[in-house]
Amino acid sequence: MRFMAQVFFASIATASFALTGCQQYVKTPQTTVLQVQDAQNFSLEGKIGVKTPKQTGSAFYTWQQNHDNFDIQLTGILGIGKTIIEGKPGKVTLNSAKTGEITAATPEELLERATGWVAPITHIVYWVQAKPATTTAQVEKDQQQRPKTIIEDGWTVDFSYNDAAALPNKLILKQALAEGQENRITMIIQNR
């Protein structure tokens, strides 16, 4: 499950960055990652946007996960710029017309190789489930006791929900940078 989260985030970020160019290198601190016992099989569809001080990009995504194996397809507006990311333990492959094929052992390695950027990609599977990824996370809850904000590993994640839904339909991930700037990732989940 952890591997799938890593690959998903790496794929989205890599595809977005492949469409927009190289990004700033930011090292993420290492912490103990919690284990997710549920939701090892799922699918998500939606849109993701990445904004940094130098670049902006977005893509539509479809993410199919079956335990530790996954398939992610990213496309730009009108289906242009299709990127396919496939993963299984020990091998992650990204293939697009712009970058060609990039293969790595881990999603973090794939993201760094493709973009030079390091991000908490191991955390995304937890965050889409409205859960903290580490034992050191700071969690602020809303009136319904759902996570409203999670702060961990240098990132702040804000959650939005449809009415009384238990799982978020929108996540905004923010990483503060020098001089008041930030990296921002907006993930909209249209279908689960």
Rank of each mutant, 00 (worst) to 15 (best):
A165H: 02
R113I: 10
L173T: 08
D163G: 02
Q40T: 09
F3I: 13
V7D: 00
E179A: 15
K131L: 15
V36K: 10
T134N: 10
F70E: 00
A10I: 03
T186M: 07
D142I: 04
E108K: 05
L177V: 14
H67L: 04
Q145H: 07
P147K: 10
I48P: 03
P147V: 05
Q175Y: 13
K82T: 08
H67A: 13
V50S: 10
T103K: 04
D153S: 13
T156H: 08
E109W: 06
Y161F: 08
Q190I: 05
Q24G: 11
A165W: 08
Q6V: 01
E140L: 14
Q40A: 11
K131N: 11
Q138D: 15
S16K: 06
D158Q: 14
V92F: 02
Q144E: 08
H67T: 08
T149H: 08
V125T: 10
A104T: 06
E109K: 11
A105K: 14
K27A: 10
A5H: 01
Q138F: 12
Q40D: 09
K131D: 10
K82I: 00
D153H: 11
K91A: 09
A119Y: 14
G79D: 03
V125M: 07
T32N: 09
I185H: 06
L19T: 15
T136V: 13
P53I: 03
K141I: 14
P168Q: 05
A119N: 12
M187E: 04
C22R: 15
K51G: 12
T62Q: 04
P147W: 06
A164C: 00
K27Q: 09
R113M: 04
L44W: 03
N69C: 04
G90K: 06
G81E: 05
A10Q: 02
M187K: 07
L167D: 01
Q23F: 13
I77R: 10
T32M: 04
K82L: 07
V118W: 00
F60I: 05
Q24N: 12
E86F: 02
K82C: 01
E45G: 11
T103V: 09
V157G: 03
I72R: 00
G87H: 01
L173S: 11
D71W: 04
A166F: 00
H123Q: 12
L94D: 03
G49F: 11
A166M: 06
L173K: 04
F70M: 05
E86V: 05
K47E: 07
Q145S: 06
P168R: 00
A39Y: 02
T52H: 10
T186R: 04
A104L: 06
M1V: 03
A119P: 03
E108S: 05
A137M: 09
W63S: 00
G49C: 08
P107A: 13
N183A: 11
V26W: 07
I85Q: 02
P147T: 09
Q23N: 15
V118H: 07
R184H: 08
Q23D: 12
T135D: 12
P29C: 03
Q138N: 14
L110P: 01
L171W: 04
I124F: 08
W155F: 14
A119Q: 10
Q65P: 03
A18K: 12
R184G: 01
G46N: 09
